[in-house]
Design a protein around this nucleic acid. Structure first.
Length: 272
DNA sequence: CGAACCTCCTGCGGGC
DNA sequence: TGCCCGCAGGAGGTTC
């Protein structure tokens, strides 16, 4: 389940293999992703990748004079650098051969991901990106912003920080983790957060995501000729998936509930 | 506008 | 051991 740190780790992993490289061949083995992979994707053949950017959990591969690729890993997607001679594995849906001899492979068992070509438009103006809120690690994501956004929302604060119009890239796992670190119960109505809570939550989101990106950085080598799965499974989680287990801080059993149809975890003692 | 719910899909875990 | 069922989850879309 790629969250923002995994996507950023992916970006850093593939960028040095892509930038400056010419796309020499496009192989599409399965078009049925969240949106159908365009039938004319091979029009990118001959163009050079100039940059790999990230916006939220979206990746943008800029192509010189050929627009850009818009990629999302969905629930189960991954990108890795392979060799064209490597056997295709089940769910390896797309491969781009590169001038230097390597190959970028898109793998996605559940096919919730996105792989689109935007020939002309500025990708940030695309309808999928246009309404996204600030990057959590940018200056724009402040306590004042979170306060303003939460003001009229009676929805649970956890749902609000997972709303990409409020802030991008906070997925289900890190939402629970950030709220634990901030000492805030996930189910409290957003509008009822008081005083320093916004600041603590902004700080906690930043910390959780930054730490996870750092951990991912240690596994970058895995992007070449391996499964492309960042090492985030090693992440030490405080509450996520730990229902009934003792809180790592106080020993109280971790609670679980469904919010917005998503599993939610918290410590009833440490979070108020 | 916000809130609640639906949808896509496969792998995996629980239950027996 | 093997099989079946149901669930998990990102995020856009729909409905009220």
């Amino acid at each position: 389940m790629p969250e923002l740190p995994e996507v950023e780790t992916t970006r850093r992993g593939i960028e040095p293999h892509l930038v400056g490289q010419r796309i020499t061949e496009v192989i599409v083995r399965e078009r049925r992703l969240r949106y159908t992979v365009p039938a004319d994707l091979d029009t990118i053949i001959g163009s050079h990748a100039s940059e790999v950017r990230r916006r939220g959990k979206y990746l943008v591969v800029d192509l010189e004079n050929a627009g850009s690729l818009l990629i999302h890993l969905g629930m189960s997607g991954s990108l890795r650098i392979a060799q064209p001679s490597d056997d295709f594995r089940k769910h390896d849906h797309i491969a781009l051969n590169l001038g230097g001899g390597a190959q970028l492979r898109y793998h996605d068992p559940r096919r919730f991901g996105i792989f689109l070509h935007l020939p002309n438009e500025e990708p940030l103006d695309h309808k999928l990106l246009k309404h996204l809120g600030p990057e959590p690690l940018s200056e724009a994501f402040t306590a004042a912003h979170l306060r303003a956004f939460s003001m009229k929302r009676k929805a649970a604060i956890k749902l609000v920080i997972m709303d990409s119009k409020c802030v991008v890239g906070v997925g289900n796992i890190y939402a629970s983790e950030a709220l634990f670190r901030a000492g805030i119960r996930p189910g409290i109505a957003a509008k009822r957060l008081t005083g320093p809570k916004h600041e603590r939550l902004v700080d906690a989101i930043r910390t959780v995501l930054s730490e996870s990106i750092e951990q991912g950085g240690t596994t970058l080598r895995d992007f070449v000729n391996s499964d492309g799965e960042p090492g985030y499974f090693r992440q030490r989680l405080f509450v996520y998936g730990r229902q009934g287990e003792p809180c790592r801080t106080c020993g109280t059993p971790i609670r679980h509930a469904v919010m917005g149809q998503r599993a939610t975890f918290w410590c009833p003692e440490c979070q108020s």
